[in-house]
Simulated assay, not measured.
Amino acid sequence: MERKLERQRATREFIVEFKRKREEWKAMERQRMEEENLRIKEFAKTQEKREEVAKAEKRAREQALDKVQRALTEQIKRDREEREEQELVRQELYLEEQEQAIRRRERDEMEARIRQRLELQRERDEQIQFKRLRDVEIKQEEEKFRQQLMAKFAEDDRIEQMNAQKRRMKQIEHKRAVDVLLEERRRQMAVDKQREINERVEAERIEQIRKQIIEEERIKLLREHAHRLLGYLPKGVIRDEKDLDYLGNDFKNEFKRRQTNMQNPNGWDNM
Results as ranks from 00 to 15, higher is better:
173 E>M: 13
239 R>S: 06
214 I>F: 00
240 D>C: 09
239 R>D: 10
199 E>R: 06
176 R>I: 13
135 D>I: 07
155 E>W: 15
172 I>Y: 15
182 L>P: 02
144 K>N: 10
235 K>I: 08
196 E>F: 03
181 L>F: 11
132 R>F: 10
180 V>I: 14
226 A>K: 01
188 Q>W: 02
228 R>C: 04
167 R>L: 05
177 A>K: 15
163 N>Y: 11
226 A>Y: 04
239 R>E: 12
140 Q>Y: 05
199 E>T: 01
233 L>C: 07
181 L>H: 13
175 K>V: 10
236 G>Y: 09
183 E>K: 14
141 E>Y: 11
165 Q>T: 13
225 H>N: 01
211 K>D: 03
182 L>K: 13
241 E>Q: 12
233 L>V: 03
179 D>S: 14
138 I>C: 03
218 R>M: 08
201 V>E: 00
200 R>Q: 01
161 Q>R: 12
256 K>T: 04
253 N>L: 02
167 R>W: 09
138 I>R: 11
173 E>K: 13
194 Q>V: 06
230 L>Q: 02
230 L>I: 09
165 Q>P: 08
188 Q>H: 05
243 D>G: 01
229 L>R: 09
244 L>K: 03
237 V>N: 03
252 K>G: 04
156 D>E: 13
194 Q>W: 06
196 E>Y: 06
147 Q>N: 09
222 L>I: 03
239 R>V: 11
247 L>D: 04
140 Q>M: 08
247 L>Q: 04
170 K>I: 12
218 R>I: 09
240 D>Q: 07
225 H>L: 03
193 K>A: 08
248 G>K: 00
245 D>M: 10
223 R>N: 09
180 V>S: 15
216 E>H: 04
152 K>S: 13
134 R>F: 11
232 Y>G: 01
204 E>C: 00
170 K>Y: 15
245 D>T: 14
216 E>L: 05
136 V>N: 12
177 A>S: 14
138 I>D: 07
243 D>K: 04
161 Q>I: 14
210 R>W: 01
234 P>F: 07
187 R>V: 08
150 M>S: 11
231 G>H: 04
189 M>K: 12
176 R>K: 15
137 E>D: 08
160 E>K: 05
153 F>S: 08
242 K>Q: 09
136 V>Q: 14
256 K>N: 08
147 Q>R: 11
139 K>M: 13
247 L>V: 10
162 M>T: 09
216 E>F: 00
195 R>P: 00
146 R>Y: 08
137 E>T: 04
153 F>R: 13
191 V>I: 01
152 K>L: 12
251 F>H: 03
177 A>Q: 15
145 F>S: 08
203 A>W: 02
196 E>G: 06
246 Y>R: 10
136 V>G: 11
146 R>W: 07
195 R>V: 05
137 E>V: 03
224 E>C: 05
141 E>F: 08
229 L>V: 07
218 R>A: 02
176 R>G: 10
221 L>E: 11
128 I>G: 10
250 D>N: 05
158 R>H: 14
186 R>T: 09
133 L>W: 08
249 N>L: 06
206 I>W: 04
231 G>V: 07
